[in-house]
Design a protein around this nucleic acid. Structure first.
Lengths: 200, 200
DNA sequence: CGGCCTCTTGAACATTCTCAAATTCGGTGG
DNA sequence: CCACCGAATTTGAGAATGTTCAAGAGGCCG
């Protein structure tokens, strides 16, 4: 990591030293030590180790969110982080500028808002939860890459069979339009048409 | 409040200018402007205004948490805050010391942990959710003052009838031992005996 | 006492879960 | 390119958990 930072310093890559993560890739594990990161783009899943040793969904982090900052204080990550979609992380705090109070305050406010969004994903009817998650994950151009059915299930506290049924229902209602790649349609990439929701 | 602050200044109450809130009391409302607070003790419920105008549970804040800090940035509260139990709030940042980076960083880490706890309160079986909430609210001496059945329902995303059934079940299993005041037993104050859980 | 709110309880109902079995997807090696 | 494998997804049917609606009990306050 020390070495990497030297390389970056010489080549002037815009966010200095970012890390790209593939879908499903583990970013860090609870208990280990490491850097804090700011999520530049993509969606990260955070999991807590439950008493019984198995990890359970704790939160989501999206563009702008800071993750793993507890490691700077306690010398170890509280959660495990996994990439739900292709994503990019930048080490935090950002090199030159010390973490100004203003910026940290903003991060705190954003984190609280994000937490409320995640809490909302676990309330109400199953269909509404999935639709809310789709909304949250849809980009400005109206397309979305969903996590696996199992990941959606963990986030919404439903079963993957239930998620499968709901996603299929959204497809049939033309809310989710599968993107066809070479004639084969993907199970995770969709164009989103929220207008179709009224037909449900 | 002005008056209270004068009183406080003369009597040297530790957190300078704190605000006491009764059970059920509104602390601030979404959209209004005001101070940020640190929760000294007690439990605060945060609600977001949903699209349809009704407010829905967003998060909990407990001793040490900072609430309403978004008002310092955006000039208005994002959430509405209500006291679930007797609680005490201190204006934040704490007078003399500017919000140091270190302390803010810690607040961020704590907020993320709290968010994970709240998310966990909305997953798994109904009984387990309520038990987890009881655990979260129980003080060091093993006693707990529960919010109303409706508040518990909002937090766990269950119905108040379901909560009522579960609390009664916990009483019958001697997990919750109603505190008797003048021979009448309260519906919200209990001594907690988690050992009784094994009998469920 | 009367009104109002919270809490309790029952019974029918709905949604979601569970379990089991196909089917499809993606990648690997011939 | 095709056969094959494991993982992810789809689908059905019955079971279970939680909801809904309705009625009544208990406590608090004017």
């Amino acid at each position: 990591m020390r070495l990497l930072s030297l390389i970056e310093r010489n080549t002037l890559v815009p966010p200095r030293l970012s890390r790209a993560c593939a879908v499903g890739e583990g970013i860090y594990r609870s208990g280990n030590d490491g850097l804090a990161w700011r999520v530049s783009c993509g969606v990260v899943r955070l999991d807590a180790l439950s008493a019984s040793g198995d990890s359970q969904f704790a939160s989501l982090a999206m563009a702008g969110d800071i993750i793993g900052c507890e490691a700077l204080l306690f010398g170890g990550y509280t959660f495990s982080a996994t990439a739900l979609t292709q994503c990019e992380l930048a080490p935090w705090p950002e090199g030159d500028t010390a973490p100004a109070g203003e910026s940290l305050l903003q991060s705190l406010a954003v984190a609280q808002k994000r937490a409320a969004d995640v809490v909302a994903l676990r309330g109400g009817e199953a269909l509404a939860r999935v639709v809310n998650l789709v909304r949250l994950l849809t980009d400005a151009s109206g397309s979305v890459v969903l996590p696996t059915r199992q990941d959606i299930a963990d986030i919404t506290d439903l079963r993957f069979e239930t998620i499968s049924r709901i996603v299929k229902r959204l497809e049939r209602a033309a809310v989710l339009l599968p993107v066809k790649i070479c004639g084969v349609h993907a199970t995770r990439s969709f164009a989103v048409n929220l207008a179709g929701l009224s037909a449900l």
